[in-house]
Design a protein around this nucleic acid. Structure first.
Lengths: 219, 219
DNA sequence: CTAACGCTGTGACCTGTTTCACGACCACCG
DNA sequence: CGGTGGTCGTGAAACAGGTCACAGCGTTAG
């Protein structure tokens, strides 16, 4: 407690990039790379070297001017900075097509962030094991979530059901939600919601693709 | 051509919000709402009224100070602003779990942005129809994409294959890519890439949930 | 041994986005 | 028929995030 982290004002964007750096570094480590410079990491992450250095300021590990950053130490520092000690269980609510895809996507990917339980209102899915994850009834959400100390959740239910699910999750003590439903969830301040809105993303792509097409055809 | 749109410098963020507004408005229209004020839209979208008004400046439809915005006219203006005339075909590459989920997710959702063709390297999937969408072999990508005038694509292949797929798509004339693979794609400047990185998003949720938990426990 | 190099960390600047604030307008009420 | 209240559009201020530039330093070449 003496070494209390100063409440760093670090932006959401930076956290995203730090997570990206870590993933890139893991690949590099697998290739046997021992040291790396900020500009190399920047090239891989698609940003500038200055931004990499500034982001890394937050994690509290300094590289050497001569050898750059030691890959294993940097990974370790990022782990300390980003991960909860002891790992975090995640609940997934809504075992439809998207839910199943996400279950398989995350299976064995991040050992520190495992999907520990799935929930669905469809009685046919309840008690089945899907991609290695047990599916529970919605009625047992609070019980299972609290029993497993789950603080994070992924919502992959239809839009109409999303708010009710979010309320139930908050009630069960969840502090963070990754929301795939195309709705703005209303939650208390202490709960963090991250939206992934595929429709909006696709429309953004369509818009900007059209823009660059027009720009390109009229030089 | 005389009415050439002034090259509005509109931010990526704004486009995302405009797309969100439109979706909210469609729901409202279904409920029979005729008029709406900026602050109501703001409450639903999770931003401020000033931001709604500023975003809407770009679309070129002015509301009335007394009745706010007419829902049908605003939807129409957003459609003109966001959508390509005549609709845009989209290709989906990678018919795995995630690809199938996305196919079912977009089926019949946005009539203007239909997934017109799917591609996979697995011969077992080729020529099957999945969620109403024909799956072609990767070899026919250029042929089918050009034949159908496809300019947009969604990548849902494993990370190792993503760059090769992106190259092939660009070669086939694709101008915008929605990329689910956890890799930074390298593409020419005239191609717009939008990344959806679920791992990064989940880690962001985990980080900020932990932050607010710590902040909450120490008031 | 000295000089020169290249990289890191960080203060200062700059750019792009959000918020504020205010003039103009219209409907409604008294 | 004038006052009042509420909203819109938009210039200007405030803010956040990203970039630049440079001091400091270990390494290495000469």
């Amino acid at each position: 407690m003496a070494a209390q982290k100063v409440a760093r004002l670090i932006s959401e964007r930076s956290i995203g990039r730090l997570s990206l750096y870590r993933r890139l570094l893991n690949v590099l480590q697998g290739e046997g790379v021992r040291n790396i410079y900020s500009h190399q990491l920047a090239a891989m992450a698609g940003c500038t070297a200055a931004q990499v250095r500034r982001d890394l300021m937050a994690v509290g590990y300094s590289g050497s001017p001569t050898h750059g950053y030691e890959v294993p130490r940097l990974i370790e520092s990022l782990r300390e900075f980003l991960d909860a000690p002891g790992g975090q269980g995640v609940a997934l609510v809504g075992v439809g097509n998207l839910g199943k895809a996400i279950l398989s996507y995350f299976t064995g990917r991040r050992p520190n962030l495992q999907i520990a339980a799935a929930f669905d209102s469809d009685p046919y899915k309840v008690n089945r094991v899907i991609h290695g994850c047990r599916c529970y009834s919605m009625e047992h959400l609070a019980e299972v979530a609290e029993g497993q100390g789950i603080r994070l959740a992924i919502i992959t239910v239809p839009a109409q059901a999303a708010q009710a699910v979010a309320d139930a999750l908050v009630q069960a003590g969840v502090r963070g939600i990754l929301n795939f439903a195309p709705v703005r969830l209303r939650v208390p301040d202490h709960v963090h919601v991250e939206d992934i809105d595929m429709t909006v993303s696709l429309e953004k792509v369509a818009y900007f693709a059209r823009q660059s097409a027009e720009r390109g055809s009229r030089p």
